[in-house]
Amino acid sequence: MTWIPEAASNLASKVDGVLLVITLISIFFFVLITAVLIYFAVKYRRKSEDEETPYITGSEPLEIIWTVIPSILLILLFVHAYVVYKDMRTPPKDAVDITVTGKQWLWTFEYYNGKKTLNELYVQQNRPVRMVMRADDVLHSFFVPAFRVKQDLIPGRYTQLWFTPTKIGTFDIFCAEYCGTGHSAMLGRVIVLSPEAYDIWEKGVGTDGGGAVASLPPAELGEKVYKGKGCNACHSVDGSVVLGPSFKGLYGREGVLEDGSSYTADENYIMKSILEPQEEVVKGFQPVMPSFKGILSDDEITALIAYMKTLK
């Protein structure tokens, strides 16, 4: 078990420094108070009913000592945490801007060159990134534990945070501000690439499921779309129900909608459910899916349906 996720950004080790100092001071005071408490409780345990106790009502020097020492320590802690915070809130001039939009329950990332990814954020190792953030519907919060950064996304205004990823790898993105039914499914990943790999990704011969991958068979492309565009957050492929119906055996299924009418999950029904998901909701499910209009291309929808057909 690790105590804290591996520090994977320039800010992380500074934040860990603050955490460590507070932890050590806390342990000191906790051990001190507990030890004294237990020592007194054992040593002065009542032995007989007519025990005499001294009439001690206080001590001014002690009051001064235990007011002044914690005060000094607290002010030092405050300053230390403030200095690191100031760093965390001041992005360097050469940071690359990436726009994040939070919407129930998807992360959309838009890059300077017009590329767009869902739930997966691609960044380059050792290059500072400034996230410019906005929410479409309700509050969300962008949280990457490995980077020790967190910032709420608020409808109607921009917020920001920045970091420099220092380790190559994949790190969790959590939504940390409660945003409704799918809150705990609003997960993403930061993928930190080496400069060379980032170059390749940037030029679009990508692996993000959204690039030029037309050479793939439709069902395989569909699987990439399923994983890359966030379908997998709410739809399983093994028959279990997460938030929405499982894709397993979905194609061709017949059933009843919320309003009592019946449906058949053919190509048109599936397309409509992706583009206007609030319109025809299957009985037993909640109308909580976001529209993928403008997010999935026609080709990608076709590929997704082809992928569904393979899930019997």
Binding site: K14, V18, L19, I22, S26, F78, Y85, K150
Partner: peptide, 22 residues
Amino acid sequence: TIGGLTGVFLGALAADIHLHDT
């Protein structure tokens, strides 16, 4: 005492950024 000391973590700016809403 534990509740109070852990409150210091949350009052400290840089530490709270990581710990808030967890």
